[in-house]
Simulated scan of single mutants.
Amino acid sequence: MLLNDSGAPTIGFLHTSPVHIGTFDTLVAEHPGGFNTVEVVDEPLLDLARSVGPSHPDVVAGISSSLDELERAGASIVVCTCSTIAGEAELVGERFDVPVVRVDRAMAERAIASGTRIAVVGALESTFSPTRALLESCASSEGVSIEITDVFSEGSWDNFEAGNIDGYMQSVAATCSSLGGTCDVIVLAQASMAVAATMVEGPIPVLSSPALAVEAAIAAVQDRLDSGQGR
Rank of each mutant, 00 (worst) to 15 (best):
A216N: 05
S17L: 12
S171F: 00
E39F: 05
E43L: 07
F35S: 04
P9C: 01
D68E: 15
V19Q: 11
V151S: 12
F160W: 14
S156T: 06
D5N: 13
S192M: 07
F128M: 09
T116S: 15
A194Q: 14
G163R: 12
I218F: 08
N164A: 12
T116M: 06
A162E: 12
T37R: 10
D223S: 15
R110G: 02
I186S: 03
L134K: 04
Q229L: 15
V221C: 04
P57C: 03
V79G: 08
A86R: 12
E39Y: 02
Q229D: 10
A106R: 02
R110L: 13
V187A: 05
N36T: 08
F160A: 07
M193I: 08
V206L: 03
E94L: 07
S141H: 12
I186D: 08
L45R: 00
A61F: 12
H31Y: 12
D158G: 07
L124T: 04
G122W: 02
M169E: 13
L134C: 02
I148N: 06
A216G: 05
I112R: 06
A217R: 13
F128Y: 08
D150V: 10
P18V: 00
M193H: 05
T149I: 09
F24E: 10
S66N: 14
A89F: 10
A217E: 02
G74F: 01
S129Q: 15
G180P: 03
A196T: 10
D150R: 07
E161N: 11
C80S: 13
M107H: 07
D5W: 12
S65H: 15
E125V: 10
F152C: 10
G167Q: 11
V98E: 01
D47C: 09
R132D: 08
D166Y: 04
D166W: 02
T37M: 05
D223K: 15
